[in-house]
Simulated scan of single mutants.
Amino acid sequence: MSNSIAIWASDQAICLISSLGNRWLHVQSVVEQARWVSQVFGESEGEYLMAAAYLHDIGYAPELKRAGFHLIDGAIYLRAQGYERLAYLVAHHSESQFEARFRGLESELAQFLREHSPLAEALNYCDMTTGPQGQRVSFEERIADILSRYGETDIVVPSYTLGYASIAASV
């Protein structure tokens, strides 16, 4: 696909999540990070990385809530729009299988193939080096922030604890 996939993704993100405050700041900075990282890919893969960066948190849009897990909700939406590969990338970014297990959503996540590729790892890198208000952070700072924001009783904490080594390998 050509540049049109990144333009489409940008339009979707603006329409669906630009009103979400810090979430939108985070997404915009992940996109900027992806713009820089995409230089190591060919044009087509670079465009996919840009599109995935715009859409990685699209499942936070209130109107897309289905499963109650933003990665799956975003993937369901992208599949319905005919963007299967983007659905795969969104569904599995940041080692979502661990949180899906804690949420009892493993079968829902399994409906989306997991792509093992440099592009999937690049998306993790861009997301996990961008803070919640869009600031550049180290991977360690990002994990510390996530753990402190959610607190010990939230399932996000054991999810990231289990996924730490895998996410760290991407970053």
Rank of each mutant, 00 (worst) to 15 (best):
N3H: 11
N3T: 09
I5V: 12
A6V: 03
W8G: 00
W8A: 08
D11P: 00
Q12L: 14
Q12N: 00
A13N: 03
I14S: 11
C15M: 09
L16Y: 12
L16M: 06
L20F: 02
N22E: 12
R23F: 00
R23A: 09
L25V: 07
V27K: 01
Q28H: 04
E32P: 02
W36N: 11
Q39P: 00
Q39N: 14
F41K: 02
F41H: 04
F41D: 01
F41G: 01
E43K: 06
E43M: 09
E45D: 15
G46N: 04
E47P: 02
Y48I: 00
L49H: 01
M50G: 14
A51R: 11
Y54K: 00
Y54N: 07
H56W: 09
H56G: 03
H56K: 02
I58G: 00
Y60C: 06
A61F: 03
A61C: 03
P62F: 03
P62I: 03
K65V: 15
R66C: 08
R66A: 15
A67C: 14
H70M: 04
L71R: 11
D73Y: 08
D73M: 02
D73H: 09
A75S: 09
I76E: 10
L78K: 01
Q81M: 13
Y83P: 01
R85D: 06
A87M: 04
A87R: 01
L89C: 02
H93A: 02
F98D: 11
E99L: 14
A100R: 12
R101Q: 12
G104S: 01
S107C: 00
E108A: 10
L109S: 03
A110D: 10
Q111S: 15
R114I: 12
E115Q: 08
H116K: 08
P118Q: 15
L119W: 03
L119Q: 05
E121G: 13
N124H: 13
D127N: 11
G131H: 10
P132R: 15
Q133I: 05
Q135A: 12
Q135N: 12
R136N: 11
S138E: 07
E140N: 14
E141H: 11
R142I: 00
R142T: 10
I143S: 10
A144F: 06
D145R: 10
Y150F: 15
E152L: 15
T153Q: 14
I155H: 13
I155T: 12
I155P: 15
I155L: 14
V156N: 13
V157M: 09
P158V: 08
P158Y: 06
L162F: 10
S166Y: 13
I167Q: 02
I167R: 05
I167L: 14
A168Q: 14
S170H: 08
V171C: 09
